[in-house]
Simulated assay, not measured.
Amino acid sequence: MERYDILAKATSDTIWDWNLGHNTILYNPGITDTFGYDLDKNEVTLNWWLERLHPEDINTVMESFSEAIEKRTENIQQEYRFLCANGEYKFVLDRAYVLYDQHKNAVRMIGAMQDLSYAKEEENRMTKAIMDAQERERREIGLELHDNVNQILAGTLLSLGMINRVPAEQTPWLVEKSMTYINEAIQEIRTLSHQLAPANFNDISLEEIFRDLLESLSVQKEFTYSLHFARFHEAAISNDIQINLLRILQEQLNNIVKYAQATSVYVSVVCEGNRLTMRTYDDGSGFCYATVKKGIGLANIKKRAEADIIKTIQEKISADAKVKVNIKVETPEKPEIKG
């Protein structure tokens, strides 16, 4: 591994050499410097490595390796979380090269693990900062519309109701027409204000906000809805996560209204252990995630999800469109791993 050690000094990567025949992996000192493991001869079994993959990543990683070997692919690149000796997970970018014998059988794999943790943390911080700025902007615009413009229009409505400077025969029509326009403007501004201003979860529960949102849309767009909200301690969920859940639901309902032509919508929120899951279904035209994943709406959902370590899954099943959001609402105890 001497030549690999020289390479690692230039890249700060952890170099590994996997003997597929013996299922053993040899690491350079990067396994100690980056991940904290003090290994005897820096050689381990494949099971040692598998045990340190994040449970949510292990299937994807192994399927990627298996598919590459089956297709005789030489280069593999993937991201996953790897458990350090101190019990913390680090995001890594793993790039590997597969060697085959004369019979096209994979016999060896050489790779380099790059620590992406700092870059991931910076990305999450940037995403959260952008969303915080958006929430502040929404708050300011919402308050401005509600406290100023709305009150001016309401005062104008009262004034128009007292019109007495036009011929008597025109007064009823003018008053009725003005009141209709102003009432519509007030309703539109009020709706916009509610969408822009961040929800205040101190005075109203997340369930009530969800129900109000569904009720307002169902009346306007003529679809029925069902909301299943399992009882749990909402105070244990941060205000930021609740706001992001609301925004994700708003985005999904907007998509349903614009594109799905649905007649019924089902929303459920369930908390089991340290995992909170929100699901939305509709009976509309559905969508194929592979063909729409570059859309702004789904991009907004994904962006909000990533800021709170939320995993989103979008898929089309028959004619039903579903979006599932899983949230880790508390940090579990870190496993104790000895190198």
Rank of each mutant, 00 (worst) to 15 (best):
D5G: 07
A8N: 06
D17H: 07
T24Y: 06
I25F: 04
D33M: 05
D33Q: 13
T34A: 08
D38G: 02
L39D: 02
K41F: 02
E43T: 14
E43A: 09
T45C: 08
T45Y: 03
W48D: 11
W48R: 08
L50D: 05
L53T: 06
H54W: 05
P55R: 06
V61H: 06
F82A: 07
A85V: 05
G87A: 09
Y89I: 09
V98K: 06
D101P: 10
D101G: 07
H103E: 14
H103I: 03
N105P: 00
N105I: 11
A106E: 11
I110S: 05
G111A: 10
A112W: 01
M113S: 08
Q114M: 08
S117Q: 12
A119W: 01
E122R: 09
R125H: 07
A133C: 04
R136V: 09
R138H: 10
E140R: 08
I141D: 00
L143H: 12
L145M: 13
N150I: 08
Q151W: 01
L153M: 06
L158D: 11
S178I: 03
I182P: 03
E184V: 04
A185N: 09
I189F: 03
I189W: 01
S193F: 03
L196E: 08
A197W: 01
A197F: 07
F201E: 02
D203L: 09
I204C: 10
F210E: 01
R211Q: 14
R211I: 09
D212I: 05
L217W: 00
Y225Q: 05
H228Q: 12
R231P: 00
R231N: 11
E234Y: 04
I241R: 12
L245T: 05
R247M: 14
L249G: 02
A262S: 15
S264P: 00
Y266N: 14
V267R: 03
R275H: 09
L276W: 00
D282S: 06
F287W: 10
A290E: 15
T291Q: 14
V292L: 09
K311N: 06
K316Y: 07
S318W: 00
D320V: 13
K322P: 00
T331I: 07
P332R: 03
E333Y: 05
G339V: 04
G339Y: 05
G339L: 07
